[in-house]
C-alpha cells in the first residue's frame, strides 16, 4: 500500500558531557586592525598575518557587504605578476603558513599561542553558512573544518591521527546571490576535541585560478541535542516520508516555523509547523530547521 514511512531520527549522541560552542565571529561582523594591511575579522587570520612572507603577500581578504547588510568576508585568488605565483584566497581561525611554493603552504593550529588557535571541545553535527561564488576556469573553493587534539594542520602534514571530526564543503558553481550551505561532520574518534581549525578558500589549493572570488557569511555550527529543557523547538519531532512531513510536539506547535534546505544549502520549502505538511521532494537528505523566534533547532532527515 502506501510506502513505508520511516521516521528517521538522527542519531542522538549522549551529548550531555560536551558544550555547544560556536565558531567565533562566524558572521564576520567584527573586524580588527581596520584601515591597515592586517585588517581581518576578529578571531580569523589570513595571508597578511601569516607566519612568513606576510609583507610580500597580496591581500586576498577584504570586508564586503554581508547577507543581511552587515559585513561578510571576501576572498580572492591573486597572482603576483613579478614571479607568476598565485596566492589563494584563504581565511582561517588558525594561522597561515605561506611559502613561495604554494604546495608547501598550509594552515595550522598553534597550540602554544592562543592568538593562533581556537580552543574547542564540542562535537557539532554540521557546519552551515551562506556564500556567493565566482569561480574562474572551473576552479572550486571550500570550507573545511577539522576538530582535533594537539597539533592540527590543513593539509594534514602528518597530523591525521589528531583528528576527531571533519566537515568539508566545496564551492563549485557560480552563485551570484547568497546561497546557503551545510555539511555534516564525520567523526573518527569518540573523544572531545581540543581545537577547531577552519579553512575557507576561494580557490582550489595549489591549482587555484586567478580571480576566483568567494563571499562568505553567517557560518555556524549545528548541534543535535537532547537538551529539551532549554529549547522547546528541540522537543518537536519530525516524521518525514515521500509526500509529507509530520511535526509533533507535546507542548504544542504554536509559533513554530520550519525551513527545509537540501544538502547544497538551497531552500526547498518553508512554512508553519503543522501535524501534516505536504512535502513532494524526491528522496534524499534534507535539513529541517525549526524556529520559534527565540530558539532554533536543525535536524537532518533522510526521506525515503
Amino acid at each position: 500500500m502506501e510506502k513505508i514511512i520511516i521516521a528517521f531520527y538522527l542519531i542522538t549522541f549522549a551529548l550531555g558531557g560536551f558544550a555547544q560552542q560556536q565558531i567565533e565571529n562566524g558572521d564576520f561582523e567584527a573586524w580588527e586592525n581596520q584601515g591597515t594591511a592586517e585588517e581581518e575579522p576578529v578571531d580569523w587570520s589570513s595571508l597578511k598575518t601569516a607566519d612568513a612572507l606576510a609583507s610580500t603577500a597580496p591581500s586576498v581578504l577584504s570586508p564586503d557587504t554581508g547577507r543581511n547588510g552587515g559585513t561578510c568576508a571576501r576572498l580572492e585568488v591573486k597572482e603576483v605578476p613579478l614571479v607568476g605565483i598565485k596566492a589563494n584566497g584563504l581565511l582561517t581561525n588558525g594561522r597561515v603558513h605561506a611559502d613561495f611554493n604554494p604546495e608547501n603552504g598550509y594552515v595550522f593550529t598553534d597550540p602554544n599561542d592562543p592568538q593562533w588557535h581556537t580552543a574547542f571541545t564540542s562535537r557539532p553535527d554540521s557546519i552551515i553558512g551562506w556564500y556567493k561564488y565566482e569561480p574562474q576556469n572551473g576552479d572550486k573553493g571550500k570550507i573545511e573544518v577539522v576538530l582535533h587534539v594537539s597539533q592540527g594542520s590543513l593539509p594534514f602534514n602528518g597530523t591525521e591521527n589528531n583528528m576527531i571530526g571533519r566537515a568539508k564543503f566545496e564551492f563549485t558553481t557560480q552563485q551570484t546571490s547568497w546561497t546557503r550551505f551545510s555539511k555534516e561532520f564525520n567523526y573518527y574518534d569518540p573523544q572531545a576535541p581540543e581545537y577547531i581549525l577552519t579553512t575557507i578558500a576561494s580557490g582550489d589549493s595549489t591549482i587555484s585560478e586567478t580571480g576566483s572570488t568567494l563571499w562568505i557569511d553567517d557560518i555556524s555550527l549545528v548541534y543535535n541535542t537532547s537538551n529539551i529543557d532549554e529549547n522547546n523547538t528541540e522537543l518537536t519531532s519530525i516524521n518525514a516520508s515521500s509526500g509529507e512531513l509530520r511535526f509533533f510536539n507535546s507542548n504544542g506547535l504554536s509559533d513554530q516555523n520550519y525551513t527545509v534546505t537540501n544538502i547544497a544549502g538551497q531552500l526547498i520549502q518553508q512554512g508553519e509547523c503543522k501535524e501534516n505538511v505536504l512535502f513532494t521532494q524526491p528522496s534524499g537528505l534534507y535539513l529541517i530547521t525549526i524556529t520559534d523566534g527565540l530558539n532554533q533547532f536543525t535536524k537532518k532527515v533522510y526521506v525515503h
Binding site: 609583507s55 610580500t56 613579478l82
Partner: peptide
C-alpha cells in the same frame, strides 16, 4: 612594468 603591477596587488609594498 611587472614591479608596478605587483606592487599594485601587494598593498604592503
Amino acid at each position: 612594468e611587472k614591479f608596478e603591477e605587483t606592487t599594485e596587488i601587494i598593498n604592503t609594498i
